[in-house]
Design a binder for these strands. Structure first.
Lengths: 200, 200
DNA sequence: AATTAATTTGACCAACTTGTAAAAAAAAAC
DNA sequence: GTTTTTTTTTACAAGTTGGTCAAATTAATT
């Protein structure tokens, strides 16, 4: 269908998305302007609207991409694997994403804080189902005596909260710990915490 | 000096602050408009500017109040108290604040995610110092063998992350767990987690 | 009741917002 | 090299934004 995609199209579309990510993640949807995005992308405003039909279209393209990347690692957890290591790997993966893609994390945080007006349906469907599966798996592991009995949902929330915190609240972390990369220490702490929570 | 404060002033100022909190916490500073705040407060826009010199003045009044309430519980931790209970009490207090004042939490989250442009100095001074003191206290407790040896900073971050998560990401929590109050379970989980992390 | 002070409103700006449309410029296809 | 398509720009429309100002209204004081 849409096999035809010029190199210019590819280049500019990704430039716009990169700029949009930067701006939206900092100011949220309503706080961001097309002018900012255009400047950031090095394009004129009407030129941006040549590639995306509206400001909202850029935002939604970013969110859609984000949700895909967000859910995959949860699906990748192997029910046949060693439980503690599977959960730890997932947590480490999330921590790595916070380190490498803090803007994506903040974009998502902005959307959720504002009540998730554009992705609420995704939350109550895809996300809910995926998490439900994982919770069931964790419960099975608990019943099999492979990990300690634990509330799977709040376990998952605690992993999300602690990993995303270092991306979303980066300024605060830096203000307290000084400037630098604190993700290694954070990962160490989280790993220690999870081992204590999971081992019988 | 400013002893004169009409009942009308008190009423309207607090109405404006309540409205500002509601709007700012949802849309962030740049995403909020004076019209929204005025409507929410049941006042006309110029009337709002009669009480606050600008949109920014409302926002800053809210932030200032917030930071005071935010730091006090940390200062209230008793160095002479029983370490595990002191930390647990603090965590429970924070959880309660997330439950009772989710808007304040989201307002703060918005500000931090956006790079804390208006309170960065507070973060690198007051907050940093207060946390440094607490970290020192925790280290002392560790050295005295009263709690396990643990990174105090990441311990604090984990408490903040997990408590604020239930306020800031409320929509997501509700999407996954269903609508209702999940703070009791969350507190239970957090208490369990902290006990495991702190007891030798 | 008259005077003074506090409060509210309506009309208004200037700057900024998203988005449009036609024309100019650049690439690609032939 | 010419034609056709794609891309970019310029100019602009329509609505929104934060904020001002003087006049009108209300409340407090005497």
């Amino acid at each position: 269908m849409k096999k035809t995609e010029t190199r210019i199209q590819k280049k500019n579309q990704s430039a716009i998305k990169a700029a949009g990510l930067k701006v939206f993640s900092q100011f949220g949807f309503r706080g961001s302007t097309l002018d900012q995005i255009a400047t950031e992308a090095g394009l004129s405003k009407p030129n941006i609207l040549y590639y995306f039909s509206s400001k909202e279209a850029i935002y939604e393209a970013l969110l859609a991409q984000l949700l895909t990347d967000w859910l995959q690692p949860v699906r990748d957890i192997d029910p046949e694997g060693e439980p503690v290591e599977e959960i730890l790997n997932y947590a480490k993966h999330k921590m790595k994403m916070s380190r490498l893609y803090p803007r994506e994390s903040r974009l998502y945080a902005n959307e959720i804080i504002q009540g998730a007006p554009r992705i609420k349906s995704v939350l109550t469907c895809e996300l809910r189902d995926v998490v439900k599966s994982l919770a069931q798996l964790i419960n099975n592991w608990s019943e099999a005596g492979l990990i300690r009995v634990i509330d799977p949902y709040h376990l998952i929330f605690s992993i999300w909260a602690m990993t995303q915190h270092y991306a979303d609240f980066d300024v605060q972390v830096q203000a307290i710990l000084g400037e630098g990369d604190h993700f290694n220490d954070a990962e160490q702490y989280l790993e220690d915490m999870l081992r204590r929570m999971l081992t019988v």
